[in-house]
Design a protein around this nucleic acid. Sequence first.
DNA 1: CCAATAATAGACTAAAGAGTCCGAAATCTG
DNA 2: CAGATTTCGGACTCTTTAGTCTATTATTGG
Lengths: 149, 149
Amino acid sequence: MLFSKAGEYGLQVVLHLAAGQHDGFVTVRELADRCDIPFHFLSKICGRLAQAGILHSSKGPAGGVCLARPATGITLLEVVQAIDGLDGFDRCVLGLEPCDDGLPCPMHDHWHRLKEGVLEMLSGRNLGELADDLLSGNTTLNKEKTPAG
Amino acid sequence: MLFSKAGEYGLQVVLHLAAGQHDGFVTVRELADRCDIPFHFLSKICGRLAQAGILHSSKGPAGGVCLARPATGITLLEVVQAIDGLDGFDRCVLGLEPCDDGLPCPMHDHWHRLKEGVLEMLSGRNLGELADDLLSGNTTLNKEKTPAG
DNA sequence: CCAATAATAGACTAAAGAGTCCGAAATCTG
DNA sequence: CAGATTTCGGACTCTTTAGTCTATTATTGG
């Protein structure tokens, strides 16, 4: 609805890393397993996040990825921007070409307010604060499948 | 971002019909031309809208489509539901499977409020009111391409 | 240096979304 | 009834997104 699958996965992983309190690198394989994300697909996503300066990465044994900066200095908006881009936020909700404050479509104003709300959701709190919510048990990233049977 | 292309087109057409003050049927061809939508694609969309009881349709010469009910009795939400469905509104914004008030993801609450806002945007006003905005010139559906050259 | 490990890059396949085409079936006009 | 018009339905192509596979490069440990 709001993000591509890659975007969803990227957000999950970044939150996982922020809440994980890992010292060094975590392998993409482990992230993929823990978050139930196709490994090769996640590799690409982490590549983009590394290129955007959100993750650090290291090859070889004891390598992997980790947050490139303190979690308190990273917002979800950066992550979304690195993966999905922010173009969607500039487009008319009806797909009309000339739709701005000058020539607004019937939903322009209302949608504009909602978009602001989304941007605020993505940039208002940093990864550290969200990680705190996770660690305190107020929220969760669990993606457990109900055990077979 | 929020709707599929088919959904966007459907909303455009329904708004166009509501604001058009047509007496009888309008051909899908004419709608496609006016709204700059691929004709065959729009045919399918109108088919769905007709099946959902939002449009009436008639074959043959002097045939076409028209709103099945007074515009004041139709909401955008119905249109979206008929074309895209409402499943997207039930899904977690991060794509997590168990994500509800009991086991919320870090964005659950915030996203829930925003979704309510979207639903309110789609159901809060009816087609008639939106058509009034269009007719009074406060809003527009214009999709003019800048003239070649 | 050698072997194992892990990210990186790119080609490839699969599935979904978007758009096209054609052959009905229905309906109006003459 | 004949022919033109228009919706309806399905099959089809094209593009994008999602996901897989393979080879390469860098790093670590022995």
